[in-house]
Structures are given as structure tokens and as C-alpha cells.
């Protein structure tokens, strides 16, 4: 126990400053006061709609003390019913199409959808095929996009903050 505490004290606070803000996102469905209320305590549900897990590794890094998503009052939740934002990675495979729609329907309004990574934004190298629906917006409406293959944790953080207007 003592060595653990000593290491904690020696490391100090390692969180990095906020990344450069991404391009502001205009939302038609969600504006003004309600967007601010949502953004102060955002809950994110991440859905892997058929990704290669490259984006998941980067999203996982959002939780570390360096990027420190938690410090902005944003957290990942275990249920779409608790969530305000659906963070989707990967081209939507036919097998995940139904699950993705269900997760979206399970979320209480007001809600946001963010497509993370090139595959989710445009279909990426997988595109549309007999097994893949392609971009997320062909299945559910998308509010904001974070391109990159995969986007870095700081790009993801900037994109998420831009989507909630912070």
C-alpha cells in the first residue's frame, strides 16, 4: 500500500491541456440551452458496428489520465438508456445493422450520434457490399463525424467536445 501511494505522489497530475478545438458543429436537432445541459454531463455509449478494433484502441485511450475524458465531466456508460451520445465505429455490417438501430431507439431524447473513424464516416476501405451497409448515416442519422484511420485520442476528444458545442 505504501509503495503505491508513494508512486502516486511521485507521478503527480499528468493530464494534458485541452486539445485545439475542432471545427464547430452545427446541429439542427439540438440547440442552445439543452445542448449545454447535455454537454456538461455527457454520457457516451460506444457501439462497434463492425470495426477492425483500431478505433476502439484509440477510444480506450480516452479514459487514461493523459487525455482524461473524465476530467471534462464526460463518461462512458454501460447502457444506451443512460447515454446521450452514440459513438459508432466501423462500417455497419449487415449483422450489426439491427443492433445499431435498436441501440439508437433505446436512447432517451435528446440524443446525439457521432461517427468515429473513416469507416463510420464513409464506409472506408470496406465500402458497401453484400455484408456491409457502409457509412453509419445510411442506417441512422449522424450529427457529427470524426475522420481518421484511426483518429488519435486527442482528435476524438476534440470531435466529441465540438459535437456538444464546448
Amino acid at each position: 500500500m505504501i509503495p503505491v501511494i508513494r508512486r502516486i505522489l511521485r507521478a503527480g497530475i499528468v493530464s494534458e491541456p485541452r486539445p485545439e478545438p475542432a471545427e464547430a458543429v452545427e446541429l439542427d436537432r439540438l440547440q442552445g440551452e439543452i445542448r449545454r445541459i447535455l454537454g456538461r454531463a455527457l454520457a457516451i455509449r460506444q457501439v462497434d458496428a463492425g470495426s477492425c478494433n483500431g478505433c476502439e484502441l484509440e477510444i480506450h485511450a480516452l479514459n487514461n489520465p493523459y487525455v482524461n475524458l473524465e476530467g471534462y465531466g464526460i463518461r462512458f456508460v454501460a447502457s444506451p438508456r443512460h447515454a446521450d451520445m452514440l459513438l459508432i465505429t466501423g462500417p455497419v455490417t449487415k449483422n450489426m445493422e439491427h443492433a445499431l438501430k435498436t441501440a439508437w431507439e433505446c436512447m432517451p431524447d435528446p440524443k446525439l450520434v457521432v461517427a468515429a473513424g473513416d469507416c463510420a464516416c464513409s464506409g472506408g476501405i470496406f465500402g458497401e457490399s453484400y455484408a456491409s451497409c457502409g457509412a453509419v448515416e445510411r442506417v441512422i442519422p449522424v450529427d457529427a463525424r470524426i475522420p481518421g484511420c484511426p483518429p488519435t485520442p486527442r482528435q476524438l476528444l476534440a470531435g466529441i467536445l465540438a459535437a456538444i458545442g464546448r
Binding site: 445541459i37 456538461r40 454531463a41 489520465p65 471534462y72 465531466g73 435528446p110
Partner: peptide
């Protein structure tokens, strides 16, 4: 070793959930 969320974060959460 991380920067903490605001002290009032639970109130923001409750405020959001009631909306």
C-alpha cells in the same frame, strides 16, 4: 493522477437527467 471533474459534476448529471 488525473485532473478531476468539477466538484459540482453530480449536480450537472442530475440536472441533465431531469431534462
Amino acid at each position: 493522477n488525473r485532473k478531476a471533474p468539477p466538484l459540482l459534476q453530480p449536480y450537472y448529471l442530475l440536472h441533465k437527467l431531469f431534462h
